[in-house]
């Protein structure tokens, strides 16, 4: 498929790409810091991944192989739509295979397969500010980041422990990057947080509506906030995938009837399919 001649390669004009590229480089140089950028209006709605799309569009070249996932799956409607958008405006190759992709754009998950040095993962971010529920004012949170004053978040976690006996944040679990910046990992389940720590791949985060880009360079420390006596734990549903039998993957719960029947399947469709394929091979 060749790129739509009605638009510039990868949709954005070159000045916009240059501005975004500069922001990405600064984001990498200051791991976890939210860099403001002149986000543009995209032909997809805010909330559908416009930040991730702008980051991806500024990275993409003709040799790239793009994978797009939403909720871990390549076939969710929004993933399909974004993949189609890039096929149309950049004419690039796409894949559903995690290991074949050079760029993975994601909403809400990190693939189960370990990402490698040749890869970049681009997260779609709705709210880049990790403290927005505690302090909605940008002028305040900006000051807190400047001073590395994250007391409000520690208090919130402490209150959680006091009330519930554990930290009750299930997703978008705040992390400390390179020991300096408190960062939102985007609404991935806390289960995925440990994958971010010292990941060999470059991690980029784009928030289109809030107009922020941030990054975690490869092999950078990403620590989920916790307390010595209440260490961070990555939870998943108890059970195995009904399709591939995986006992280590993050699971989606599927309601099968209205009498309490349910089953669990891998949220990462590529991981699940690979495991199913290798089981069939082994059986043959």
């Amino acid at each position: 498929m060749t790129a739509d001649p009605g638009y510039n390669f990868a949709y954005l004009d070159e000045n916009t790409k240059r501005m975004i590229r500069r922001a990405i480089l600064k984001a990498i140089a200051i791991p976890g810091h939210q860099v403001p950028f002149g986000g543009r209006e995209m032909p997809l709605p805010y909330g559908w991944g416009t930040g991730g799309i702008q980051v991806t569009a500024s990275l993409l070249g003709p040799d790239d192989v793009l994978k797009v996932i939403d909720q871990g799956a390549d076939d969710t409607t929004n993933a399909v739509s974004i993949r189609h958008f890039f096929r149309r405006v950049a004419g690039i190759a796409v894949t559903t295979r995690t290991r074949e992709a050079s760029i993975i754009q994601t909403r809400h998950r990190i693939p189960e397969a370990k990402l490698t040095e040749g890869q970049i993962i681009v997260y779609q971010v709705p709210m880049p500010e990790p403290m927005f529920r505690l302090e909605p004012r940008l002028t305040e949170t900006r000051r807190m980041h400047g001073l590395a004053d994250y007391g409000v978040m520690h208090v919130k976690l402490y209150e959680d422990v006091a009330c519930h006996g554990e930290i009750s944040i299930a997703y978008n679990y705040p992390v400390m990057v390179h020991g300096r910046y408190l960062m939102s990992p985007s609404p991935i389940p806390a289960f995925d947080n440990p994958k971010m720590d010292r990941m060999p791949a470059l991690q980029l985060f784009g928030a289109g509506r809030e107009k922020r880009i941030y990054a975690v360079p490869p092999y950078t420390s990403v620590r989920s906030l916790d307390f010595e006596d209440h260490p961070f734990r990555a939870h998943r549903a108890k059970g195995c995938c009904a399709l591939c039998g995986a006992g280590d993957s993050y699971l989606d719960e599927v309601v099968t009837d209205d009498r309490g029947g349910r089953m669990f399947v891998c949220s990462d469709t590529d991981y699940c399919e690979e495991r199913q394929a290798s089981r069939t091979e082994n059986a043959a």
């Binding site: 909330g47 559908w48 871990g72 997703y171 991935i188 549903a237």
Partner: peptide, 12 residues
């Protein structure tokens, strides 16, 4: 849009 991954984590 689908939020079932996050919802699943809250369910747990």
């Amino acid at each position: 849009l689908p939020h079932y991954v996050d919802f699943q984590s809250e369910l747990e």
